[in-house]
Design a protein around this nucleic acid. Structure first.
Lengths: 131, 131
DNA sequence: GCTTGACCTGAACTATGGATCAGGTTGTAG
DNA sequence: CTACAACCTGATCCATAGTTCAGGTCAAGC
């Protein structure tokens, strides 16, 4: 095992989260409790970093902080079957969103074509008006 | 042209928005201003309904109310080239999200497999413990 | 003629997800 | 030895997106 360790600033630069947000997330239980150095500074292990990377991934895919907190709690308690359930539900959410987004993209393309026509037409009209 | 008309409650049931939200959206400019009956009640046309359906679609795909408001304003002012720009930017947003979601789905599947293994293993361990 | 239900307005309240600030402690560098 | 950076806690503040409430109008049915 490597005993690589990280400061909160390292975690910030790895995840793109601000230092304030990292502390906030730990406070509300979205990140696991982190051990401290003698002076009280947080000291992160490699596995802490990996957990945090996964959490930021969950957040990017719109999982509410409440649900993430639940997931992290289950994990801390070793209730992996519950972790499984939470992720499975989130998977369904993502699938639904994915379908919605795909449909939306089509609509957007259709609308954009419409606007292109409208814009073209109105340009011709302006030309005529100027004659 | 059909002169079908709708009450706010009809709009609510067609869109899934609450009546309060519909009024709120109109107030902040996310929906166009709607004409009234003599008694002050909103009276929606077919084209109002269609615009509102499109707006709810934009909202479902995470467009911020501010941006929707901008889009609706441009449309009201007949600035269709600006409408085009707003939608095009949103299209890029959707494409990005789509890619993110797709990747996320893969990760989720991977994690779920992991958990399945962990759960299986721990069940066997429990069995052994009970011997 | 009065009650009931759908609508109206404006204002206050709520929840979520942070950001920012005040005030304090280390620890290394000049 | 002092100043500067990086961290700490707790508290307050902010934006977004609504929800709820108080008080009022109007039309239809009993």
């Amino acid at each position: 095992m490597e005993d690589t360790s990280y400061l909160i600033s390292d975690i910030a630069s790895h995840t793109g989260l601000s230092i304030d947000v990292i502390r906030y997330y730990e406070k509300i239980g979205v990140l696991p409790p982190i051990s401290r150095k003698e002076n009280g500074h947080r000291i992160y292990s490699r596995s802490d970093l990996e957990r945090i990377m996964f959490v930021t991934h969950l957040k990017r895919t719109q999982m509410p902080l409440k649900d993430i907190e639940q997931y992290v709690r289950f994990y801390n308690e070793g209730q992996y079957d519950q972790c499984y359930n939470v992720l499975k539900e989130h998977k369904h959410y993502i699938e639904t969103k994915l379908a919605e987004m795909t449909e939306s993209l089509e609509r957007m393309n259709y609308k954009l074509e419409n606007y292109q026509q409208i814009i073209q037409t109105s340009m011709i009209t302006e030309e005529n008006t100027n004659e």
